[in-house]
Write a protein that binds this DNA or RNA. Structure first.
Lengths: 251, 251
DNA sequence: GCATCGGTTTGATTCATGTCAATGTGTTCG
DNA sequence: CGAACACATTGACATGAATCAAACCGATGC
């Protein structure tokens, strides 16, 4: 079984210059002698909630990582059916070295700040700094594992299991992000609309709404407002996901 | 849109020493000064159809690539539901540098020959040979793109579209494998049982069987026996997949 | 205060796919 | 040859999720 997308535990402890959060990919650079060069290259971009960063097929001349907020990658079929294929939280890497155009629609689902590097110089730096490539390889492998867990969810889980799984995934990543999570309260905001959840899960938004209500009625989750979720018993939630209790963490 | 899994066009033309086929990952090594070293490290393993290469969670002390035959990666839920998450054809890479245990069940669905390297020395070689890491990164990114296309299939396509898509995927990869495909006859053997197809597509084998029959009845495909497929009109098949006509090839 | 709007919930109904069961077909092996 | 077996097909029926439709909620603006 694949592990969850790489969490902050895996990070070296340095913080990248003036970036407000740690950047996983960039940390490889921070460790290198090219730090000064890196500082020159770095720039920030902001996006408002709902804004599209790039459309699938458009030129994408930068790579970067999410500093704050959430980006999604989605594919759309001609008739409008949509499937989310990536959910990028702070520290996640965006873009593909070696490709000039975006393969998916990249959208900000909340206000987002990105830390960017123009692609060409970044690629050159990859050649000079092998540790950066290795870091990217590890991150990409983690993402591939996450994608495969996602495939199991899409192909074989019931609507109820899908919802429980998504909440568990967000709870895990969210509590990993707020590094010092006060106690085990496990209360957080769902950073996605019902429609975005549906796009993630391969469901309709009506089904998402119904199953969220059902989990609430059964006491698996507690809702305060539409978005704030409290998980009174994480083990109970895990039972509802259909996954192994341990989340299938490999060695 | 992501492109299909990397095809042979992308390969350098050298052939790897005494391997009967070109190895994508290994070609990076073939280009390096470490060729002699590589030759010492390389060894072959054979598996019979149906044999399991490693079970999820088991120790996996090697990496390698498929020389002939087909491997699948599958995840299994406690109650037995199964989802294929990887389909590895000749030249595809198996294993994960930096991880000691397998994350999925790896199974030979046909007789298979693999070209293997013990993981530890391979990892050391990666450190000495940056081009190997970069090659692996590109391959992993391709696989991630394939996984994301697969997610769209699992989440949003109808059973009929799923079948058409799978046939198109195999046809494309298969004709790429038989490098000199005589004409455009587009006849090939489905290398998967109905059950394996169902595991790939997130369906039951009964639904697979029904939809294959339906596509045959509608003249989209022609069957000779259970496995041999002829595609009289590839564009017609593509229409049935629900994808863009061009297969969504990015720049 | 009221209208508007995006996001959400809920209900009634339909439909695609799953489930259960029987049968068919080709191959292997006594 | 026939039995046994794996694989595949087909049918009848059940059901979970989609669809279509209406109403609700909370924020924002006039």
């Amino acid at each position: 079984m694949p592990k969850a997308p790489a969490l902050f535990e895996a990070l070296p402890s340095q913080q990248c210059a003036d970036c407000p959060i740690r950047h996983r990919a960039v940390c490889a650079l921070c460790e290198s002698d090219d730090l000064a060069k890196l500082e020159q290259m770095k720039y920030y971009r902001s996006f408002e909630a709902g804004q599209t960063v790039v459309w699938s097929g458009d030129e994408m001349d930068f790579v970067g990582s999410v500093v704050t907020g959430i980006l999604t990658l989605t594919q759309t079929m001609e008739d409008g059916r949509r499937q989310m294929v990536g959910l990028l939280l702070p520290s996640d890497f965006v873009g593909r070295p070696g490709r000039s155009s975006a393969a998916y629609d990249v959208t900000a689902t909340s206000d987002v700040v990105m830390c960017c590097f123009r692609k060409r110089p970044f690629e050159e730096m990859m050649l000079r700094t092998p540790s950066l490539g290795n870091r990217l390889l590890q991150m990409t492998l983690d993402e591939l594992d996450a994608a495969r867990e996602w495939m199991l969810l899409l192909g074989r889980k019931s609507a109820r299991e899908k919802i429980a799984s998504l909440i568990a995934i967000i709870a895990r990543r969210d509590s990993a992000l707020k590094l010092r999570n006060t106690g085990n309260d496990l209360t957080f905001d769902l950073p996605l609309t019902r429609e975005a959840m549906a796009d993630y899960l391969g469901l309709t938004l009506e089904t998402v709404s119904r199953q969220v209500s059902a989990l609430r009625k059964d006491g698996v989750i507690v809702l305060s407002g539409k978005r704030q979720v409290t998980i009174p018993d994480f083990d109970r939630l895990m039972e509802e996901t259909g996954d192994d209790a341990d989340g299938g963490y490999p060695g």
